[in-house]
Design a protein around this nucleic acid. Structure first.
Lengths: 209, 209
DNA sequence: CCTCCCTTGTGTACGCTGTTCACAATGTCA
DNA sequence: TGACATTGTGAACAGCGTACACAAGGGAGG
């Protein structure tokens, strides 16, 4: 007689299950909290099974990071879409820039773990256009920011000679605030204070770009 | 007869030795690379000896973080001191603000591992005034930034009503650039490009604050 | 249908980590 | 001198990432 016939040999979509478990762990604890063995445990599978779908722990973490960036893009798109379409082109351009900033900071506030997984995990710069991290309408958060800046140039609100490198400056500002409040020295800054700081910061960017 | 009489029972200053080893490890690999057992190994001591001086691994890492922030403050002071004393008060104020930014970004560029140890390790906000992280003249990098901003207000370059929260905006900007280039999506950005981006960013801050 | 082979799972094992516990050597103070 | 706190050692444990050999199941060619 065969004792204990195996039940679960084919899982169905283990890769997806591991990624989902990884996202859950990252949500509460950031990328360092993604532990491979725990992911397999949650998927009801032996530790080594993971190695059929990810070469490494780091590869799993990178997949989590990609998925997290896709969610950031989605959050930004949501803010973008909330901009009323009745605005003049000039007002719309400013509003879009601010929407990108708000979406970015809002995600950092609401999903700190995923935010850190999204932006503090080693991924090459080529990933800025990788569809794996794009939002619902296939646009990367970086692309959304670039679009807003192009609009600003088009309406004459941003001198063309300052356009180059503007992504980097704008992105740095909001990213810096997010990091300081999330895992930096300003950790646990009061939620409302952080919100006000975000608004003030976006003012600075809009004025100084 | 006593076999193998013990040689090293009193180390002298083990705490300092562990901290130095921790700083070395953080220098190449950031805070995650600080491993307690390795530190004891480098100090020529058994693993558990560390627990006589640090309750935890995290306590060791925090000590490393404090020391790293002290070095950041020193780097900023060096830039500050390089500002020529012949400038007008107004020019000096701007120059000091830019010196703080340059010192911060320069440290991030030259000592990426220590920079991450300095600013991505859980420490309460009260540490912003802790003498353990101050520079040679007992000033925290945060205090140096605040001084520069006060000068800007004094010479009328920064409207008084925008003074509050200005630290946070300015700090966010440079911190964000540093993080994006260090461990963020812009990792390994060309050194010269990063330098130019830093200059452009400081322009934005100076203009938009 | 049978056979071969590739894919995807399991089991065992290794070295590394942080950490706990009991114990030993040393320095200090009565 | 003797008691005591300090600072080191040694053995042990659980948890981690990972390598290796092996087994179950599915698909393709005969």
């Amino acid at each position: 007689m065969s004792l204990a016939p195996r039940t679960n040999y084919r899982h169905g979509d283990l890769r997806q299950a591991l990624l989902a478990a990884g996202l859950d762990m990252a949500r509460e604890g950031g990328p360092d909290a993604v532990v491979l063995r725990e992911a397999t445990r949650r998927a009801g599978v032996s530790p080594n099974a993971a190695y059929r779908h990810f070469a490494d722990r780091t590869e799993l973490v990178q997949a989590v990071s990609d998925a997290a960036r896709a969610r950031v893009a989605a959050a930004i798109e949501a803010e973008w879409d909330a901009v009323p379409s009745t605005l003049s082109a000039a007002d719309a351009a400013h509003a879009h820039l601010r929407a990108v900033g708000r979406g970015y900071l809002g995600f950092a506030r609401d999903e700190p773990g995923l935010f850190r997984a999204a932006f503090t995990v080693p991924r090459g710069p080529e990933a800025a256009f990788d569809p794996a991290e794009a939002g619902p309408r296939d646009r990367t958060s970086f692309q959304l920011l670039a679009t807003a800046l192009d609009e600003l140039v088009a309406v004459g609100a941003l001198p063309r000679e300052r356009r180059s490198g503007a992504e980097l400056s704008a992105w740095s500002a909001v990213h810096g605030l997010a990091m300081l409040v999330l895992e930096g020295p300003l950790r646990n800054l009061d939620r409302e204070v952080a919100r006000a700081a975000g608004a003030r910061l976006i003012d600075m960017v809009d004025r100084g770009l």
